[in-house]
Design a protein around this nucleic acid. Structure first.
Lengths: 141, 141
DNA sequence: GTGGTTGCAAACCCTTTGCACGGCA
DNA sequence: TGCCGTGCAAAGGGTTTGCAACCAC
């Protein structure tokens, strides 16, 4: 992903959020870490350059970012939360053996699903978005 | 879902698990409660008829049932775990406003996805199964 | 200036663990 | 009888909360 700190500042102020060093560092960490980090990984990364950040702050900022749709939570069946900086609709590959989660972007698939549900309504339910979870194994493991 | 206690006893012993009242009660609770209950809901339900069951026991049994593929964990972006007694491949409808999760069974969709990924391989990844998460709102809410 | 943010530490809550007792095979 | 499963209570660990100090705007 290509981005600059200035981009992050802009994203924050567009949402009416105060631009603080902590918030910049957290968004930056999520982008840099890439692989759907846990809060712990984010804290660990930020403390390299900013040892004084409080973990409570990180959790609060993550919540704020989610509320303002700057990041998403990744759904898993584990009890630690993971975060995702990509806001465009996309899908995920889950490894059965380890806890790697990779992004899967496939516009052809999106079209297929959109067309399918354009005709096939689900009674009593209004669809907002969908996300395919693909479980399997990475060859490299 | 149609089932009897005898069915549950059979499922347990088929997997080589000892048939205990607690295990029967837990599987029965998941089937009866239906709507992807949390551990807390399961405990609450069972205590109506069996007030002495320990919560530790419930968690241990749930783990055992998952390991032996009698139930599944439902993936969410919340920090409480939820459980699902349906083992056949199926999808889920997630309500954006509340925490209702409903099953969505659609064989036509399964066929569509299977055919799509029969041709379109994902490089470096071997697909085991997929599950579509459909987010939106229920009219009734 | 002032209201939103941060740091800190304690509280929370769901889940896990250890161990002795109990009950299914 | 042997061993797996249960109850109990304590520990664990990720996340949330309260409050005073701070700092973007």
């Amino acid at each position: 992903m290509e981005y600059s700190i200035e981009d992050i500042r802009n994203k924050l102020s567009e949402k009416g959020l105060k631009v603080t060093p902590q918030r910049i560092a957290i968004v930056d960490a999520i982008y840099k870490l890439g692989s759907h980090p846990t809060a712990e990984k984010i804290i660990e990364y930020i403390r390299q350059s900013n040892p004084n950040i409080a973990s409570g702050t990180v959790y609060k900022v993550l919540d704020t970012l989610i509320k303002h749709k700057l990041i998403k939570r990744v759904t898993t069946d584990k009890d630690v939360m993971r975060y995702d900086g990509i806001m465009e609709n996309h899908h995920h590959l889950y490894c059965i053996n380890c806890d790697v989660i990779e992004d899967y972007i496939d516009e052809e698939l999106d079209t297929l699903l959109n067309n399918y549900f354009k005709n096939k309504k689900i009674e009593g339910f209004r669809i907002n978005e969908f996300m395919l979870q693909i479980k399997g194994t990475f060859d490299k493991h």
